[in-house]
């Protein structure tokens, strides 16, 4: 790590001001950033600790939820309103990392976490367009088991590792951001960018902006929802494929459905095509498989992750079948 100054912001305005300095970065739980600084992937001269900003979790006027960006992941997962109204979000967070890391990580930080591609993390020895634009991509012909089958580009095939964001994508969450010039709200689906030719730019957040809150609209479909994570180790491992889904049926027919995929794309992947294919269809396993196939029709496998196409479809079908349960 390069020599470092540490600041603790007591307000959003102060954080915005401090973060404007060159080499400055916001610090949440630090579970990703500190590691990347130690690895030399991130060069940071000023850390602005924003954990003293709002961490409240409150019901919003429209019956949704407003979560301060500094709320710890574990606090969100444990919150009674999250558990009862948005079980997929609670489960997604609980599927991520370890209890210790969930206690440290903030939701704002979780949205900003970076890929776990082993070539991205290897500043000393590997080429990576995300870390060093234009240097090349060693993942494409290398170890890419954890990499993307959807939304990748010739320049980058890395995945977004967040579990929480997959659930938030399915929930149409909105991200509240602030800068010196004001505030704006960004739909979660628009927040993360696909890599295209600039994999180093991962979100639409401007350097001068900070995340202040995550808003989750009320969602009837979320009441019957879950998150399933498929991984190489039973716990404490990143997803190969994960599915966040909510489902409501009427007379055995899909009334509403929300689906997010994790582990398959550079961003939390909202499966809008599969959702459209399912609405009004009978809730059968074959319909679920067909909808999953529709979503994955454009999937492009790499040398080491072709199995994910099949795995994503099967997992989605199994999750929706489970959610159909006795409501069928």
């Amino acid at each position: 790590m390069i020599p470092l100054a540490y600041h603790r912001a007591s307000s959003a305005d102060e954080a915005i001001h401090l973060a404007g300095a060159p080499g400055a970065r916001l610090l949440g739980g630090g579970t990703n950033l500190i590691d990347l600084m130690r690895k030399g992937v991130e060069q940071v001269s000023d850390l602005v600790d924003v954990t003293a900003l709002s961490s409240s979790i409150e019901e919003s006027d429209d019956g949704g939820l407003m979560i301060g960006a500094a709320a710890r992941n574990s606090a969100v997962a444990a919150h009674p309103l999250v558990r009862s109204r948005y079980p997929l979000l609670s489960r997604a967070i609980l599927a991520g990392a370890s209890a210790q890391i969930r206690n440290m990580a903030t939701v704002g930080g979780n949205l900003m976490q970076r890929t776990r591609c082993v070539y991205f993390n290897d500043a000393a020895g590997s080429r990576c367009n995300k870390r060093a634009p234009g240097s090349g991509c060693d993942a494409r012909g290398g170890f890419n088991r954890y990499h993307a089958i959807l939304g990748a580009s010739p320049h980058c095939v890395a995945t977004n590792p967040s579990d929480m964001s997959v659930a938030l994508a399915a929930l149409d969450a909105r991200i509240h951001v602030s800068s010196a010039s004001g505030t704006r709200i960004i739909a979660l689906g628009d927040f993360h960018r696909l890599p295209g030719e600039r994999p180093d730019i991962e979100t639409v957040l401007e350097p001068s902006e900070i995340i202040t809150a995550i808003e989750i609209p009320p969602s009837a479909v979320a009441a019957n929802s879950t998150y399933r994570k498929v991984r190489d180790r039973a716990s404490y491992a990143f997803a190969l494929v994960s599915v966040a889904a909510g489902l409501t049926l009427r007379d055995g027919v899909v009334e509403d459905v929300r689906i997010g995929f994790g582990g398959v794309a550079p961003k939390p992947w909202r499966a809008l095509r599969a959702e459209a294919a399912l609405r009004g269809q009978p809730a059968t396993e074959s319909a679920f498989m067909a909808a999953a196939a529709t979503e994955l029709a454009d999937a492009v496998p790499l040398s080491g992750n072709g199995f994910k196409i099949d795995l994503a479809q099967r997992t989605l079908a199994a999750v929706l079948t489970e959610l159909s349960g006795d409501r069928r």
Binding site: V118, S126, R233, A234, S235
Partner: peptide, 15 residues
Amino acid sequence: MNATLADYHVPSHLD
């Protein structure tokens, strides 16, 4: 390439 305990998977308690 997986010179970390995050990427080299020794069994966890749940395994």
